[in-house]
């Protein structure tokens, strides 16, 4: 039994000590996280430019929000997202032709508003 536990510990420790690259994303002209210090909270718009792209092209998505210490959370059903903060860039691989939905949640720690925008991916 001691032997088994010994082998299990070796395997467990070796997996836990694996040095992985830090999770995340990088984009060459990545915009940094922007923190607006305005006191009035609002999430006025979420815009995709352009609204139609070819596979592998870039679509810029802008969130316009005001508030104190606001944070942006981005999600996508399918497409890749690059960057963070109020401006991100997105793209889609051949798997993801058609309408792509990007969601953005803006929160100041008290209020949370979610909006979504759609762009189209063509071949």
């Amino acid at each position: 039994m001691k032997k088994i536990i010994f082998y299990l510990i070796i395997i467990t420790v070796s997996i836990l000590t694996i040095n992985c690259k830090k999770e995340g994303s990088y984009f060459p002209d990545n915009s940094s996280v922007k923190t607006d210090t305005s006191s009035v909270y609002s999430f006025t718009s979420l815009e995709a430019i352009p609204t139609t792209i070819h596979i592998g092209d870039i679509v810029n998505i802008y969130a316009t929000a005001t508030g104190k210490g606001i944070a942006y959370t981005w999600s996508s059903s399918h497409a890749e997202i690059f960057g963070s903060g109020s401006h991100i860039q997105s793209s889609a691989q051949p798997c993801c032709l058609g309408r792509q939905k990007i969601g953005c949640t803006v929160s100041d720690g008290v209020h949370t508003i979610t909006k979504s925008v759609v762009f189209n991916v063509i071949n």
């Binding site: 999770e23 995340g24 994303s25 996280v33 944070a71 942006y72 959370t73 981005w74 999600s75 996508s76 399918h78 497409a79 890749e80 997202i81 690059f82 960057g83 963070s84 903060g85 991100i88 691989q93």
Partner: peptide, 14 residues
């Protein structure tokens, strides 16, 4: 299957 980066961006499915 829905992991986010520390900056609050959801990673792609792949």
């Amino acid at each position: 299957y829905k992991d986010f980066t520390p900056q609050g961006v959801k990673l792609s499915r792949d």
